[in-house]
Amino acid sequence: MGEHHLSHGPANRGRYVLQTAAPLFVREPVGAPRGAVIVLHDVFGVTDYAEEACRRLARGGWLAVSPYLYYEHGGPAFDATELPVARGEMTRLTAEGLAADIAGARDYLTGRRGMPAPAVLGFSMGGYLATWAAAHHDLAGAVAVSPSGVEHAPWAGMAPLELLVADRRAPWLGVLGRDDRRLPPDAPERLRLAAAASGPHASVVLLPEAGHGFYRTGRPGHAPHADTEAWRRITAFLARFAAP
């Protein structure tokens, strides 16, 4: 894969893929960016809704990039019927590789594009990784939507989400579905207590009638009202903490 890969169809104008540690899906805003955001995908990879998250951010004025975390095995994206295969791909990732991929995305934005420290927005496993990044990198802020790993990290060598929230170095927002059965029943309260620990601003939002994956537009489990509210919270958080 070369350095730049242009997409020539009109619907993809302004979209390209860039090779760093992991290749990046890049979405440019119209005009000068107000800031930068790294979007970390869920177990299904850089799918249509991961790309749409970048597009939504670009429409709001942000330079948005999403690393293809599965790139070492061809960078696949999976649909909802392929969850067991997607989970198998997820387990092949390593803490060392993920750290390099996130650092590569950050270095591209700050070093090559001259942006200030970016924010990070992650979904499910990406929500865990966004929180991990907030505890290990200088960032403008981090948003974790439907995060996994509250009690046990998804990968060896990484701390549970609860501890990462307490150790954050950047402002943090957790967006959880009240009906998310993959979370321990006391997860919201535990994360709120961790967020109340010393450190930058942190808060937890609990969305009613939203299960795990409520943000997946056009996919099973999508909750449009929760998705709209989540994006309202996300954009307010970014405007407060990630715009220079």
Rank of each mutant, 00 (worst) to 15 (best):
W172F: 12
E189I: 14
A130L: 06
G221V: 04
H152W: 11
F123N: 05
G199F: 14
V204Y: 13
A99E: 15
A153I: 12
R168I: 01
P160E: 01
L109H: 06
A119P: 04
T217Q: 14
V145E: 14
L129R: 00
P160T: 08
G122Q: 12
A140R: 01
V165P: 06
W155Y: 14
L191P: 05
A210S: 03
R182G: 15
L193M: 15
A144I: 11
S198C: 12
W132P: 07
D138R: 11
A194H: 09
L207N: 05
M125H: 02
D107M: 13
L183H: 10
A153C: 03
R190E: 11
A187P: 08
L164Y: 02
A103Y: 05
D107Y: 13
A130C: 07
G177I: 01
Y108T: 10
A119E: 08
A100E: 14
G114I: 02
G114Q: 00
G211H: 12
D180N: 08
A100Y: 12
A142H: 03
A130M: 02
Y108N: 12
A195G: 14
A153L: 04
E151W: 03
Y108G: 11
P184R: 06
A119S: 08
L139K: 09
D107P: 13
V204S: 13
A100M: 11
A194R: 13
